[in-house]
Design a protein around this nucleic acid. Structure first.
Lengths: 214, 214
DNA sequence: CGCCCTTGTGTACGATGTCCACATTCAGAG
DNA sequence: CTCTGAATGTGGACATCGTACACAAGGGCG
């Protein structure tokens, strides 16, 4: 019994009915624990209770599957950021509110990176092209991608008078660089295995730097 | 003739003489063009004109080989940073000199990322552990690792009175985060394919942000 | 000169991505 | 309601990879 992995779904109908989705789900789970390189086509089909080749009816090749997983992971990043923003206490001062919303973007991003390192790495794994980070499939509940969320938060800073207009252009790349870099450091860099509280502090420090230096 | 790849070295001696090095060299080239996933053990042995298993006399497994390549790549990062520092014109004002040396660290780092994306990605590819970035094998000509070079540059800023002492602790992680994040953006993020001059500007902007926000 | 440890060889196995031909089924045209 | 074609799964096969095990070659030290 130990020989047969842990896949359950014994189909009785010839058709699966929802293979594409099942494969995506299985692949997402693989990515969750093991990152992009753990997304192996045959494993996904196994989990879905189907023969390896069946996958080719729904994905051109392994890369296409991985790409779909990447998009899904990116969408989760967006959702985590949205959740973080939603959690910020209702603001009195509009400037304080704009600032809180901006910080929530970075905090959410970093939180996701720590909580789901496998998915995080998969989201940003794109050999050759990552422009798709702005694609529709990468959007969260509000229909916005992580980049769009960041952009809006920055606009909010400008509106609130916290960021000079002439500093606005290109600011997303400054902010994104810093936060993403820290995320990498935390996930598999020298800052790995930091205590959660220290991790949070590190994140706040980086965001402080961004606010000062942007 | 087209069937046999492009490997030349027809050995006549049974012993290779310098296999470990040959493998490392071949693997480095593979990484240079194709990143970490392109480092395939069999390809390296093929290039070295030796049977696949021979590699196991010098590396425990593919991961060990990849690790060695990663270290070598990291050393090149260090050398590029050193070169960038060496190129800064002799300073009059000590403060300006410290500042220039600091900026050179970031600029060199970014330059390497653009010029050798494959090696750059390989240098920072470490599934599980990246603490080795501070290991001796990762050092450049002066025997210092990228992290150490950054640390020294920051110390220089403090000595020159450009950075408050109480801001010094942990500053390397702020700076590293920002620069590394930008490097990733430039290599396979939305900033990929930017014009070299724009690329340089982006780098300077990020370093500006660091100086202001650190 | 002879022994043995190091280094390279041969053969083999399991896993993976992918191709091609075939089987099964669903859905719509008549 | 039946027939038929387009979707969807299946089976079998192949090249490539990492790696294990047993064997061969040969260099260095007694």
């Amino acid at each position: 019994m130990a020989a047969t992995g842990g896949e359950k779904p014994k189909r009785d109908t010839y058709r699966h009915g929802d293979l594409r989705n099942a494969l995506l789900e299985a692949a997402l789970e693989l990515a969750r624990q093991g990152g992009p390189e753990a997304v192996v086509l045959r494993a996904a089909t196994r989990q879905a209770g189907v023969v390896p080749n069946a996958a080719y009816r729904h994905f051109a090749d392994r890369d296409a599957l991985l790409h779909a997983v990447s998009q899904a992971a990116m969408a989760r990043v967006a959702r985590t950021m949205e959740a973080e923003q939603a959690a910020v206490p209702p603001a009195e001062d509009p400037a304080a509110a704009a600032r809180a919303r901006f910080r929530a973007v970075g905090t959410g991003y970093l939180r996701f990176a720590q909580e789901e390192p496998g998915l995080f790495r998969t989201a940003f794994h794109v050999p050759g092209d990552m422009t798709h980070a702005a694609a529709g499939t990468a959007a969260g509940a509000t229909g916005k991608t992580p980049f769009e969320l960041l952009g809006e938060a920055l606009d909010g800073l400008v509106d609130a008078g916290l960021l000079a207009e002439d500093r606005r252009p290109g600011a997303e790349f400054l902010a994104w660089s810093a936060v993403h870099g820290l995320a990498v450091l935390l996930i598999d860099g020298p800052l790995r295995g930091l205590h959660p509280t220290q991790t949070h502090d590190a994140g706040q420090h980086v965001i402080d730097m961004i606010e000062r230096g942007i």
